[in-house]
Design a protein around this nucleic acid. Structure first.
Lengths: 256, 256
DNA sequence: TCCTCTAATGCACGTTTATGCGGCTTCATA
DNA sequence: TATGAAGCCGCATAAACGTGCATTAGAGGA
């Protein structure tokens, strides 16, 4: 490899940080045939610019702090990440997917591999801004007044925007799961929006933590018969799952 | 190889920049059998014209370090925060404000006091998701395909969404400021969108760091006469500021 | 034709920058 | 707490940079 100009080298380091999630000074030094001091200097500069975070032996991508839904997403992040991985395994690449506002879908967006090709439609700014970091994802935003509690646009405007699209898959978060496996929501408007999104999509997938089975939410969104796939955790109530499966719904449980 | 005339040589350098993504002074000098000084002079001229970016040892194509919006928001954050505070002091509370996609506007959103009442219209998901944390702000999102480089929606859809609103104030970020104080952008579409936003707003404010005065961006957005207020730093070029002030533009400098 | 003027180039100079190395300190881990 | 690895600081050096000046080539006018 020919010698790299300084900014090229630093760009390469940034790129590797993004793709591999970490860099080791010694490896980079050997690979780029420069001294470790030089790499350390690079990392120092990048860190000063906020583009990485130095650690002993190398560097990591900068800490994530966009704020917003992230408060809710701090609740059981481990569970949600593993849930997200399971859900992603059921997504056909290169399809059009609607991502509802919600912390599980936020985790899903975060967990998307860098090379996962997708057209993502969302009404949640926090989800959109994470999707922008995924090079293979085309992001379409639904406009309108943004509901603060929901973290997404659920107005008539958003519905109109969505009406011209027919997603292959609608991924819904649920505020709670009813006794008959029905998806329920806390907000009336929100419930209506979710129902509409599901109705125009070819297929609907519901992703929820086990805890959602214990929560009673007032507004009905969808009966168990109306969604094709439920992704949840091992800890979820088995009786309820049987009930849902009996409606012809595909149940996916996280491995761990 | 026959001797090349100056414009031919510079054209060749540009071409090589495009095809190879980089040039090294020493290599070019040897190849074209001219001295390195000559090559350096060429690169200096090209850089002044915004056709390349000089680095130690050679040059790279322009706009080499755009990065995503969240990445850009990490460079010089304290400057941007102080800039944001100055800009906020010029915003009338309880008005309708359009916030363009850009890292300075992201900082502005972050710096908004919790009790600052505002209706904010934005095309950038990252900005919207920060605004959701501000209880006194009503957020309206513009939809459409989101441009990854820009970090915001700039499609015809976003323009249509914006067309039904008449903001009291349009706050623009600039990719660069031209020699006559004109706002310039890196993207053609983006420039058009910014121009449209300014044209339908009652008043336009431009917020830029001092560094933007040194950057040459290809597409014109607005001449100095078309915006009412420029917020920038003490370090900005005074001659240029005088020129802009002469157009009847209000200049606001950061305190620190 | 000859002269002058200007722009382009190359060269010599001092200055700045990037890099590597040695010595010493700090850190992680067993 | 002991130990090897990583980090930091200062220095040395070579390469790249910028500037001023001399040389050259070509254009245009007398």
């Amino acid at each position: 490899m020919s010698e790299l100009l300084l900014p090229e080298r630093q760009a390469l380091i940034c790129q590797r940080l993004k793709s591999q999630g970490r860099v080791v000074s010694a490896e980079l030094a050997a690979e780029l045939s420069v001294s470790e001091d030089t790499i350390r200097r690079d990392l120092k500069e990048l860190a000063a610019a906020g583009l990485c975070e130095k650690v002993y032996g190398g560097a990591l991508p900068p800490a994530f702090h966009p704020g917003s839904l992230t408060e809710r997403s701090r609740v059981a992040p481990e569970n949600k990440a593993s849930l997200a991985r399971s859900a992603i395994s059921r997504i056909e690449p290169a399809t059009v997917v609607f991502l509802d506002a919600g912390s599980t879908n936020l985790a899903l967006a975060e967990a998307l591999p860098q090379d996962f090709a997708l057209t993502a439609v969302t009404n949640a700014p926090a989800i959109a801004s994470i999707l922008l970091e995924k090079p293979a994802v085309e992001t379409i935003l639904l406009g309108g007044i943004v509901d603060r509690a929901m973290g997404g646009a659920i107005s008539a405007k958003a519905r109109d925007d969505l009406a011209v699209i027919k997603p292959d898959l609608c991924i819904l978060g649920a505020c709670g799961i009813g006794t008959e496996g029905d998806v329920r929501a806390f907000g009336y408007e929100d419930a209506g929006f979710k129902r509409f999104a599901a109705s125009i999509s070819k297929k609907t997938m519901v992703v929820v933590t086990a805890a959602k089975f214990e929560i009673v939410a007032p507004y009905a969104v969808l009966p168990a018969s109306a969604y094709a796939c439920l992704v949840t955790e091992q800890a979820a109530d088995r009786n309820r799952l049987r009930l849902i499966a009996a409606e012809g719904c595909d149940i996916v449980l996280t491995r761990d």
